[in-house]
Amino acid sequence: MQPKITILVFGFLLYFTCSSSAQKIAMSFEEAANQGVPFEHLDSLYKSAVHSDKDLAVFKSPDEQAKLRRAYAQMLHDLGIFLKENNFHWETQVRSFNRIYFNADGAVDYFLYNFAPEQISTEKEREFKQLLHLFVQHYSFPLKAGEKFAQCSPVKYLDR
């Protein structure tokens, strides 16, 4: 029986510009900045998956954007299943913001996250980071593009 996981994705952001040679890294926004790879730098290297100006987007048509939304939601759902299969429990609803940088083949280069203040203990975040790192090592986004791209969104994680 497949475990039930609910991850609510809100506000598919349209203004996101993000390309870099990276190795599958999962870390908080703060860690990325401290390690010399702030999101502003990554944003200058990766093209936006979607954008209000279609010329600046990787996925331009409404059909491509709909496929992207479905694939992105499925990726977050798959992450939830992976976490549950690895005995990770949120214990309560947790808010986060993710910015994910993909190579042209759909592999994750960087998965940056930021939890809302006081949403998660240091130990729970450490456990999440370890599992997220394992997840991005093997996960491939189902959509491919001719170039590196990025997508972001606020997320609510919770156990079901």
Rank of each mutant, 00 (worst) to 15 (best):
M1Y: 12
M1T: 14
M1N: 04
Q2D: 14
P3K: 02
I5A: 04
T6V: 08
T6W: 06
L8E: 06
V9Q: 02
V9Y: 03
G11Q: 13
F12K: 05
L14N: 14
Y15W: 14
T17R: 00
C18D: 14
S19H: 13
S21V: 12
A22C: 06
A22L: 13
S28W: 03
E30S: 10
E31C: 10
E31F: 00
E31I: 11
Q35W: 12
G36I: 02
G36K: 04
V37N: 10
E40N: 14
E40W: 05
D43M: 01
D43E: 12
Y46M: 07
Y46I: 05
Y46A: 09
Y46W: 07
Y46Q: 09
K47R: 15
K47N: 03
S48P: 00
A49L: 04
H51C: 02
A57N: 10
A57D: 13
V58T: 11
F59E: 07
K60A: 05
E64R: 05
A66N: 14
K67I: 04
L68D: 00
L68G: 09
R69T: 09
R70N: 13
R70H: 11
R70W: 13
A73S: 05
A73N: 02
L76R: 01
D78L: 07
D78M: 03
I81N: 07
I81P: 03
F82G: 06
K84S: 10
K84G: 01
K84V: 01
N87W: 10
N87F: 07
F88Y: 06
H89I: 02
S96H: 00
I100M: 02
I100R: 02
Y101M: 01
F102Y: 14
G106I: 00
A107Q: 15
V108Q: 00
D109L: 08
D109C: 13
F111G: 07
L112Y: 01
Y113F: 15
P117K: 03
E118N: 11
I120F: 10
T122Q: 07
E123R: 10
K124Y: 01
K124I: 06
R126W: 09
Q130F: 11
L134T: 14
F135P: 01
H138E: 00
F141Y: 08
K148N: 11
K148A: 08
F149P: 09
S153R: 14
P154S: 10
V155M: 11
Y157S: 01
L158S: 15
D159Y: 04
